[in-house]
């Protein structure tokens, strides 16, 4: 499947491969470590250590995990939390589509590989010049994050469980900061910036009139409407 051009020497390829793995490890370790924040937030939101760890092991998609915990922490029902979380996980479908031609996985390999389809593994894979390097970047990043993310989640959850009062150390402020940190890189166009401002206003307007969690779901869905209106104008 790899598309090595004939003029590239094997030596050159090995060096390029090593650079891809090095980058993947750097991103993987950096991202994996902040699983400790997710771990600490779980018990703060009222989840048990096991529930917190189950999310990192089985859902394994950071923003969606934070979303579930965030909604539950703000008093929303677990079902509202799950709905928000799964809606946010929808982007992984498109990551899968963009990686599928490089991965070419079938049978049990597809079932295992699917679990590694997240923001960072896709970002470190999809930009590579060859499918061979795309796979290297994807798997090294995905597996590194999976291993570290789960260990740090457990550590954070046990520590968070022991701390007791999360608000005394400002963890609720850190959750807002975490969502902002995830949102920030997406605010790279006038369209996304406008959507963000409109949705913030809409969500705050809805807070007094709806059950906790509902402003978040309606905010996300209003982005669908805005996407249909503005997405077209940007394309045409």
């Amino acid at each position: 499947m790899s598309e090595h051009s004939p003029e590239q020497s094997p030596q050159y390829d090995r060096e390029a491969d090593r650079a891809v793995v090095r980058d993947a490890l750097g991103v993987g370790i950096g991202v994996g470590l902040y699983g400790v924040t997710f771990g600490a937030l779980g018990p703060a939101a009222g989840l048990s250590v096991w529930q917190t760890c189950a999310l990192s092991f089985l859902a394994f998609t950071g923003a969606s995990q934070f979303a579930f915990v965030g909604v539950v922490a703000s008093g929303g029902s677990p079902i509202a939390g799950a709905l928000t979380s799964v809606l946010l996980g929808g982007r992984n479908v498109f990551y899968g589509i963009s990686m599928a031609p490089h991965l070419q996985v079938r049978g049990w390999r597809r079932w295992v590989t699917a679990h590694l389809v997240i923001d960072e593994s896709t970002a470190m894979g999809v930009t590579r010049p060859t499918s061979h390097q795309a796979r290297l970047g994807f798997y090294w990043t995905g597996i590194t994050i999976f291993l570290i993310w789960n260990v740090t989640t457990a550590a954070g959850a046990i520590a968070g469980d022991a701390i007791g009062d999360p608000e005394a150390i400002g963890l609720d402020g850190a959750v807002a900061a975490a969502f902002l940190g995830l949102l920030w890189p997406r605010l790279d166009s006038p369209v996304t910036r406008t959507v963000a401002v409109v949705v913030v206003a809409l969500a705050l307007l809805l807070v007094p009139f709806t059950a906790p969690g509902v402003p978040i779901i309606l905010g996300g869905l209003s982005a669908v409407a805005l996407g249909l209106v503005w997405g077209g104008r940007r394309d045409d």
């Binding site: 965030g70 946010l88 969502f179 963000a196 949705v199 402003p215 978040i216 996300g220 805005l226």
Partner: peptide, 13 residues
């Protein structure tokens, strides 16, 4: 735009 919308709403709430 769903991720932007959801994350913005999560920040606000």
């Amino acid at each position: 735009l769903i991720p932007v919308g959801l994350l913005a709403a999560l920040v606000a709430v």
